[in-house]
Amino acid sequence: MEKFTTLQSTAVPLLIENVDTDQIIPARFLKATSREGFGENLFCDWRYDSNGQARPDFVLNNPLYSGKILIAGRNFGSGSSREHAAWAIYDYGFRVVVSSFFADIFKGNALNTGLLPIEISESFLQQLLSAVHANPKTLFRVDLENQELAVPDRGLSETFEIHPYKKMCLLNGYDDIDYLISLKDRILAFEEQKPA
């Protein structure tokens, strides 16, 4: 997993609530056996019409907006457990998703992918959205060590929660497998004493 420490970037606003994983990456694109390439089909049915033409009204097709931060409406990532959703967002080039509420499995999958999910208050979310609408070039700053998301130009900032273990993993680029393997003796001992 890639390390994540700080990030300064413009953002893409996705003004939709309850974005589910079937929207992020429709099932018909889950046939691959590797992790790469899902970004091409990120939000496919919103991004392209049935003839494969880009829909100009969808934000990813709007040249005004770009950046490594996706700002989305509440309850982002509900539905299926497909990690492909997090891979698609990451593969497209995002490194951070900001919302006022995330579905559990998506949040876990994002953290395991190296994509940072930042959960903020609904009111801060609205402030961020108005900032990016007023000026698509607005820079956002993410500081994982200090758990802070800020809009320096506007003097706005809010801290966010992240589990200390997951934070350590992201800061160092570690993943859980290394850690679990290091516990092998304890796992074996657990199996010994466990009733059938």
């Binding site: 299926s80 457990s81 497909r82 990690e83 492909h84 997090a86 559990d104 499995i105 876990g108 999958n109 395991n112 992918t113 589990h163 273990y165 993943d175 859980d176 497998i177 850690y179 679990l180 393997i181 516990l183 092998k184 796992i187």
Partner: peptide, 22 residues
């Protein structure tokens, strides 16, 4: 409960997961 593919790999490797208690 359902898990993502990284977690599938964790269970394959160790029969365990690192989790916060719901």
């Amino acid at each position: 409960f359902g898990i993502g593919t990284s977690q599938v790999a964790m269970v394959m490797a160790s029969q365990c997961l690192l989790l916060n208690r719901p």
